[in-house]
Simulated assay, not measured.
Amino acid sequence: MSARNGAKEGTVRVGVLGLGRIAAHMGETLRKMSDDPRYHTLVEPYACATHDDADRAADWAETYGFTRSYGSYEELLDDPEVDLVYIATPNVFHKDQAIDAMEHGKNVLVEKPFAINIAQAEEMIETSRDNRVLCAEAMWTRYMPSRTMLTDMLASGRIGRIVQMHADLSYPLTHKKRMTDPTLGGGILLDCGVYALNFGGMIFPNATVTRMLSNVVMSPEGVDQTFQAAAVLDNGVLTSSSASMLCASPRLGIIQGTEGYAIVWNINNPEAIDVYDANHRLIDHLVPPEQLTGYEYEVASAAQAILDGRIECPEMPHTQSLHMLGALDDLRADWSMRYPCE
């Protein structure tokens, strides 16, 4: 990548498409990265766009230190200086907007869930290959140092052979339209549920499900409000996942082995990992390094992938996005749940 209009050599200019709550976290992240010596030559907070509100985009750009703002998505995609587009819109729009961006020659980092279903994801990945641009899923826990800390601890054998594990992530969220509206791809599964399922996916990325059972409570609007799912993997490990938009939860990830167990405090943004022996004695307390916001790791990975000419990130390759969406599709099929866009 060559320098453009005074940009530092090798700097990836980021455009944010969609300016809701999650985009505000990314705006803060990019502002902090631009001031951090570890990242300031790697990424630049460059452009932002709303669907139809130029004034709001301008205010957002000023708040987070972005150079350009646009009142339409198309204007952002037409800007030749944008290298990477972060897609932060509701679930149902991810596929079309990612494909549109890639057909404009832009690399994309797509907020989770990557797509509504596996068929959409396959279309996105095909577009990525055809245009030789990055298409990555922003499943932030996959990129965090805590993931490596956890997998290294498990690989050391400190808790023995893993037998079973459980993860839950629940928040009261019924006041949010994006959660309750089927036309926006609502429901807890595609929001918090993906983190619960992802917990096992990070630990056993190549395992396949041999048997699955699930239960769900549906809303009057026709989306999942609460679910529980249990699966047996082909390596003999029993996994269970749950999430709800009706209540809060401790947000724990629990991994049980033949010699002890581990508790991950807050699977959505791990604060610590406590390791216990079989007699319930605490034998280690692992704390991830201090972070800017937690989003910097996915941005840095995507930027480096672009500079290296790759179309996927090693932390969340296309095979894993497809694997996780396949699990989500299977659960919704079990519940006879389909979105209007399908």
Rank of each mutant, 00 (worst) to 15 (best):
D152G: 03
L154Y: 08
M139Q: 01
F227E: 03
V223P: 00
T180F: 00
C135Q: 09
D224L: 05
M202P: 01
V163G: 07
S128Q: 12
L154H: 07
A155L: 01
G193H: 08
G200R: 02
L184R: 06
N198V: 00
A230N: 14
L189Q: 11
M212C: 09
T151W: 01
Y143I: 14
M202H: 04
L173H: 00
V209D: 11
A155C: 07
T208Y: 06
M202N: 10
R129S: 07
T151Q: 04
S240K: 02
V223W: 07
E221Q: 15
S170G: 11
R158F: 00
L189W: 09
L189D: 11
V194D: 00
L134E: 10
N235T: 09
K177Q: 12
S241H: 12
T148I: 07
T127K: 12
V217L: 05
F227M: 08
P172N: 02
N198S: 12
E123S: 13
L197F: 10
R147P: 02
V223R: 03
R158M: 08
R129C: 02
G200I: 01
Q228R: 07
G157E: 04
T148R: 14
R161D: 14
M212T: 14
R147F: 06
V216G: 05
C135V: 13
M212K: 11
E123C: 14
F227Y: 11
I162Q: 07
V163S: 07
V223L: 10
I159W: 00
D168A: 09
V216C: 11
D152N: 12
S219W: 04
F204Y: 08
M202L: 05
T141E: 09
M149Q: 11
P182Y: 03
S241C: 10
Q225T: 10
L213M: 13
C135D: 04
D152H: 06
S242F: 14
D152P: 00
A136D: 15
T174H: 10
P145C: 08
G201E: 12
L190K: 09
P205W: 04
D130Q: 10
R158V: 15
L150M: 12
G200D: 03
K176V: 14
S170A: 15
V163H: 02
V216H: 09
M124H: 09
M144K: 05
V209F: 01
E126C: 14
S128N: 07
G186D: 04
L173G: 00
F199L: 06
N198D: 13
G186T: 10
M202K: 05
S242T: 11
P182L: 07
M124S: 07
Q228G: 10
I203N: 02
M179S: 04
M139V: 03
R161S: 13
P172I: 03
A231E: 15
I203E: 04
A138H: 11
K177C: 01
L233H: 14
V223M: 03
L233S: 12
M149R: 03
R161E: 12
M179R: 13
L150F: 07
S146K: 02
A230P: 00
G157Y: 00
I125F: 13
A167V: 10
S156G: 13
Y171W: 14
V209W: 01
I162A: 09
S219A: 09
V232D: 12
Y171A: 06
V232T: 13
Q164M: 05
L169Q: 09
